[in-house]
């Protein structure tokens, strides 16, 4: 059985985030195109392209997701968030037509995560985005399943290179199932092996142990 030195926290996937999930931490650094709706006084030094003291109203820039979520408020109109290209009408049509051919790793790599996070920002397109995310996942499910359950003892990098991070995690769990079954079938399950934890220990020198 797989023992790791720590239990990795799975990503939150939906609108919520898991604070300790590495994937979600990376996800909240994705940049979003925004437009300021009011003056940001004395923050002009952040914008390298102009040497004004303030960031004026209506300027366009890119901010990371975590900052957008913090600054965004429905009533106060501090900034408005524009949809990234992949979630707009044009790409949505592509996803609805055939989700299997799209390279989600290039588009994302947090296509589903970021898409769900976009629902925090009010937009008339939100229901369509949510629907497209779900349909894309369903459409690509069969391929993820088949490749993860059939690729045994071969190089999987070709299979996973076009998958979103979420699908990669699924692929890995499918592979663990396949590998543990194949191990059992070959009779390797009955052999005792050292735990991963023990293998990862470095050799200690006596001088390190003594006080």
């Amino acid at each position: 059985m797989d023992t790791q030195s720590y239990v990795s926290v799975p990503p939150g996937v939906g609108m919520g985030e898991n604070f300790l999930s590495l994937d979600d931490i990376l996800l909240c650094h994705e940049r979003l195109p925004i437009r300021t709706e009011c003056i940001f006084p004395r923050l002009g030094f952040l914008e390298k392209s102009s040497d004004m003291q303030d960031i004026p109203e209506g300027s366009k820039m890119e901010l990371p997701l975590w900052l957008c979520k913090g600054l965004y408020e429905r009533k106060k109109r501090v900034l408005s968030v524009e949809l990234p290209k992949v979630y707009r009408e044009g790409w949505r049509t592509v996803f609805n037509a055939d989700p299997k051919v799209v390279d989600l790793h290039k588009m994302g790599p947090y296509y589903y995560g970021l898409g769900s996070q976009m629902l925090h920002f009010e937009s008339p397109e939100n229901p369509d985005i949510a629907q497209t995310l779900l349909q894309t996942f369903i459409g690509r499910f069969r391929r993820t399943m088949d490749s993860s359950q059939n690729a045994y003892n071969e190089d999987t990098s070709v299979l996973v290179e076009r998958l979103d991070c979420l699908e990669k995690a699924l692929f890995r769990s499918g592979q663990t199932g396949l590998h543990s079954f194949q191990n059992w079938e070959k009779g390797q399950a009955s052999q005792l092996t050292a735990s991963n934890l023990v293998l990862n220990y470095r050799k200690r020198k006596i001088t390190d142990v003594l006080p």
């Binding site: 995310l133 993860s148 769990s173 499918g174």
Partner: peptide, 28 residues
Amino acid sequence: NTIRSFLLDSLNCMYKLRSNLLPGSNKG
């Protein structure tokens, strides 16, 4: 047993993506 972990994880993901469709279901 061979498909359990994969299927459960997928269903979890699908459930979460589906709950996105209902606004305000799991905010905060």
